[in-house]
Design a protein around this nucleic acid. Structure first.
Ligand SMILES: [Mn+2]
Ligand SMILES: [Mn+2]
Ligand SMILES: [Mn+2]
Ligand SMILES: [Mn+2]
Lengths: 224, 224
DNA sequence: AAAATTATTTAGACAAATCTAAAAAATGAG
DNA sequence: CTCATTTTTTAGATTTGTCTAAATAATTTT
């Protein structure tokens, strides 16, 4: 087990997230994601290529190797376990956990993470509904659909949001929509594709909520 | 609130610990403590002096400024709270906590530490019996004496060990002596100053234990 | 297909943290 | 007090991670 620097780990994890959407990741794309400069990215890609963590041909973009993916899943595991700890045990709010986990994820003691996992009761999802890889780096996804595709009046539960910007989280918080919230779609408006939802609030009451397409496209649910 | 690098923090904390024993800390002393070279220490001392964290005149050694002590106490607070978390919640053994806390102490979110403190129930002592500074950096010591100075047959409780080497911790573990262990001195042997103790084990039974002067000098107790 | 634009890489610089080897200052033994 | 030893500092090099500016390659527009 080799250890990687904080900067190397941040690059590896960012590529991992970007490559699930696009195919090969480009220099500019990664530079934007990490708020760094393209020239710096090129330097780092050469280093990670030499360490056999990714495939990289000049001007062709890059993609993680099998080994690189394994390393990335380890970092993702640490990140999400810490997020769960912060939200569940220390009562951090949903939006606050990410920044702190971004630091904690680089403390790389294997024993620490496995004991933390055990202490937390082997949670399968982080506070944003993203799956937590197990010790071997395996992820088990649950079948989920975008709320825009949910049938009318079918009970479901919010399990994932695909964008985690402050702006989105603020809006969700305001509308009382969280991971785990029970929800049904009551009406779809053709004019602007907005949705009327009925939710069960934390206090067991039901409430009616209107959401825009822009918001709906980022909310994913599973049937209950 | 300025932030300091991991290396700066390690230097500041090491000086803090060394200066309680000696007066001014010397270049060689600090280099030995941090397993680095004297030349590197001189470089770092110049930097920390420029940041007003310590007083340093060439060839005269160094000592933390008031500001430097405040920073050091913050690091010590983080270190000991994490040690407590690791031992108490994650069931790490006594000897294992230090190395991991050495990394966690550099995650500097103020909110993280204060919430962790609250979650742990504001513990006053770490697993080695060392006091945990409060939010303001205040330490409250409890009156403690070396077990060699404890009166015969007076009930006391182990609250501190002054050396934390692997070798010492191994020996204490073997003799079932831990922080919190209830103990009385039954006899002092003049020949080699060894002590016969009677302890209450974890399983509420009492047992008799012999310890050498070398060991006794490192064990501190408070009356109960 | 040539020109314009955009993306990527290279070249060279810089700050941080470390090191080795050499110089300078302090200490202490006789 | 003087000289040998020890301690500390300086000088110069190295590694890592980053940047700016310039060069080059790829892509898109006309
Ligand atoms: Mn990170
Ligand atoms: Mn997350
Ligand atoms: Mn440390
Ligand atoms: Mn401790």
């Amino acid at each position: 087990m080799v250890n990687y620097s904080t900067s190397e780990e941040n690059h590896i994890k960012a590529i991992f997230h970007l490559q699930t959407h696009s195919g090969n990741v480009s220099t500019n794309e990664l530079a934007r994601e990490l708020r760094t400069k393209p020239a710096s990215v090129t330097d780092m890609m050469k280093k990670l290529r030499d360490k056999k963590l990714l495939h990289y041909q000049p001007y062709q973009g890059f993609r993680l190797s099998t080994e690189g993916k394994k390393v990335a899943l380890g970092i993702v595991r640490r990140h999400r376990l810490w997020e769960y700890f912060l939200a569940e045990k220390l009562k951090f709010s949903w939006e606050e956990v990410h920044a702190v986990a971004e630091e904690l994820e680089h403390v790389s003691s294997r024993k620490l993470i496995d004991k933390l996992d055990e202490y937390l009761g082997f949670p399968r999802f982080d506070p944003h509904g993203d799956p937590i890889p197990d010790t071997e780096g395996r992820i088990r996804y649950n079948p989920q659909i975008c709320i825009t595709a949910l049938e009318l009046n079918l009970p479901a539960q919010i399990c994932h949001v695909s964008d985690q910007s402050k702006e989105l989280l603020e809006l969700l918080e305001h509308k009382q929509l969280r991971i785990g919230t029970k929800v049904e779609v009551k009406k779809k408006f053709d004019f602007d594709q907005s949705l009327e939802l009925r939710i069960k609030t934390a206090t067991k009451q039901t409430a009616s909520v209107m959401i825009s397409v822009q918001l709906a496209q980022n909310i994913f649910v599973k049937h209950v």
